[in-house]
């Protein structure tokens, strides 16, 4: 393992994740601009569907990463150490906040439908993006905070 102990490797990967998470959240949320542009445009092209599918794939990957801690290609002992007690607590906190954000977004979307129709696909997109985006930002913040002064 490049001369590093399991603990050092886990610490290195954990720090890297703490740096990457906010960037991932920004990339994920800026993708919404592309979706809004496509949906508000005059006609859909095949390339637009590919862009929307890319969002769906990214959403699935990020959701799986939050739910399982990621690092699927690392050895079991490294994965186990990265997903230690604090990381699990941070992930749970992030998922809790993501759920609350998703539910609040549902309330807002429901309210909007009283005045303007919102199709199912758009509603799912907004709810999923808000929930997942909030969870990612929260997880990234907690991880960075935990690494501070470490």
């Amino acid at each position: 393992m490049n001369g590093r102990s399991v603990s050092e490797r886990a610490d290195f990967l954990s720090r890297r994740r703490a740096r990457i998470l906010p960037a991932l959240a920004i990339i994920y949320l800026t993708q919404q601009a592309s979706y809004i542009t496509i949906r508000s445009g005059p006609a859909h092209r095949a390339v637009d569907e590919v862009k929307i599918s890319a969002w769906l794939v990214l959403s699935a990957v990020l959701l799986t990463a939050i739910a399982t801690n990621g690092f699927w290609f690392q050895p079991r002992e490294v994965r186990s150490m990265i997903d230690d007690e604090l990381t699990r607590a941070n992930r749970n906190d992030a998922m809790r906040l993501g759920f609350i954000f998703a539910m609040l977004t549902c309330i807002v979307v429901y309210f909007i439908t009283m005045f303007e129709p919102v199709n199912g696909r758009d509603a799912v997109h907004i709810v999923m993006s808000d929930g997942l985006g909030a969870a990612l930002i929260r997880w990234g913040w907690l991880e960075r905070f935990a690494h501070r002064d470490a």
């Binding site: 603990s7 886990a10 610490d11 954990s14 150490m81 990265i82 230690d84 007690e85 604090l86 990381t87 991880e143 935990a146 690494h147 002064d149 470490a150």
Partner: peptide, 10 residues
């Protein structure tokens, strides 16, 4: 103890 350094730190 089998955790990462950030856990000990926090």
């Amino acid at each position: 103890v089998g955790v990462t350094r950030k856990t000990v730190n926090t």
